[in-house]
């Protein structure tokens, strides 16, 4: 154990550089997939046929492609189409797109969980669609959507390790490089696992706190 701690002290600084990139890619992926997911969910429930069809098809197609392949596509194929991105940007874009269908489903199921009578009551006092969403549906849907949103966030964090396959020196890649140069597999991969866990725990805690504080005003 002492041995592990002294070795950990040695390797942590290098791994922390990876942590920085992992957080960057994860945050970028969150934000992008959340925005895309919201847009897709709104399109889906808009009641406007073409929009809802586009959203439905997008979800089916993108969800059916492995995130890894999406990343490869953006990093290796887009340049041929004239769009060259840095590895980090490609990773964020790829993760954001790959997770947008999951986010869309999280938001959609939240919205659809709200009883139809709610929007009817809101419409019947003269609200328009936007106001019905903003003032009546979303404040309730958010409570339903939070737990699955939290799990999706953690999946994004874990899958940010896919960025390593397109040369982003994130935590997983730093770990791999360090392990192959030192042969300290056990120490290093244990550290890598612990660091990922250390990043996901605050997410879990944050979600728990959000859920609770949203449930408060009763």
């Amino acid at each position: 154990m002492l041995n592990f701690i002294s070795k950990a002290e040695l390797y942590l600084p290098v791994l922390m550089q990876g942590v920085y990139l992992t957080i960057l890619v994860t945050l970028g992926g969150f934000i992008l997939s959340t925005i895309l997911g919201m847009v897709l969910a709104f399109m889906r429930v808009s009641g406007i046929r073409p929009l809802s069809a586009i959203s439905r098809v997008y979800v089916i197609v993108v969800r059916g492609i492995p995130a890894l392949v999406t990343l490869f596509y953006i990093y290796f194929v887009f340049p041929d189409l004239g769009l060259s991105l840095t590895a980090v940007h490609a990773a964020i874009l790829g993760l954001g797109i790959a997770y947008s269908p999951y986010m869309a489903e999280v938001f959609r199921s939240g919205i659809e969980a709200i009883d139809n009578g709610q929007s009817e009551a809101a419409l019947s006092i003269g609200m328009g669609w936007g106001m019905v969403m903003r003032r009546v549906i979303l404040p309730q849907a958010i409570k339903v959507a939070l737990p699955p949103y939290g799990s999706t966030m953690i999946m994004v964090l874990k899958d940010s390790s896919l960025a390593s396959t397109i040369t982003v020196a994130d935590l997983s890649l730093q770990g791999k490089l360090l392990a192959s140069s030192t042969f300290e597999n056990t120490t290093i991969f244990t550290l890598v696992a612990l660091l990922y866990l250390a990043m996901s725990l605050p997410l879990t805690a944050f979600n728990g706190w959000l859920e609770k504080s949203l449930r408060q005003p009763r």
């Binding site: 009883d115 009578g117 709610q118 009817e120 009551a121 809101a122 419409l123 019947s124 006092i125 003269g126 009546v136 404040p139 309730q140 005003p217």
Partner: peptide, 16 residues
């Protein structure tokens, strides 16, 4: 709709 209000069987109050 602002001139003709509606009261529903299941109330449909906004629970939040």
């Amino acid at each position: 709709r602002t001139r003709v209000s509606m009261v529903f069987q299941r109330f449909n109050l906004f629970p939040h």
